[in-house]
Amino acid sequence: MTISASQHRTRNPLERRYALLGVLLIAPTVLILCAVIVYPLISAIYLSLFSIYTPTLKGSWVGLGNYAQVFGSSGFWGALGTTVTWTVGTLFLQIVFGVAMALLLNQNILFRSLARSLVLFPYFVSTVVAVLIWRWLFNDLYGILSHLLIQFGVVDMPVDWLGKMPNAMASVIFVGAWKFFPFVVIAVLARLQTIPEQLYEAATIDGAGVFGRFFDVTLPQLKEVLTIVILLRTIWDFKEFDLIYLLTGGGPVNNTRTLPLIVYQQAFGLNQMGIAATYAVAMMLVMLAFMLIYLYRARRQAP
């Protein structure tokens, strides 16, 4: 990355003066980004070639040995599978709930802005708070959820929501959907409000019913925003750490241990910093495809 004030030799002094000022203004950003992102990123790749014991930070060169070990282990592939399950599951729910809720909130309902605020809240609340609440709701002795289910006769024993499979994965996916679906709501809602009313009127005149209007007018108009939302949420769900770590810690028996959790576990649980870096880099490589697609799309429709 080179940034310089002189672009063409033909530039006149005024343009050079401006370019210099521009570089000066961006300089703090570049310095900080280099120090806290570029340098750590490169050193993460470098560290992934070492075997390092966390408490002493003493390391020895192992080259690509870590990668051979990671890609050869069932741990990585298992965690990758878990990550994909979690991402696909929670993303699916987020999109379905999100679009449905956006459509409802776009109706002319009473106290609409209050309803919107309430729906938004889970997204902005700290993951720690969200997890505490849900662990209390899931509580095996006094949790309201099991009690309600018992009262309505759905089950006759308190459910072990987080301690066994497939409950744990389902719970994590569900809580994830609850926490993150408002993002979809806002994005879709914003787009819905820009769809011209004439389109619906024209479709109605052409004989389209409620569903016809949704599939022929609304959905095509939402295609663009949904693509971007799905890309972004895929990336963010894929790298989600807090929610899963705090809900299940990866359990039971590593069944909800996604890739970010493995990185943390290796580095600060098993004290294997080198191999943890390897996991992190490997994970980033998997994500890179989505990141590049998003970058491409975002650049294409740059402001």
Binding site: I37, A280, R299
Partner: peptide, 22 residues
Amino acid sequence: LAALVLFTYLLPSVVLIIPLYL
């Protein structure tokens, strides 16, 4: 630079956390 900013915006924290900790 603008593309790089967007890229870093998507970067997972767990990749940076080990070098940052060190």
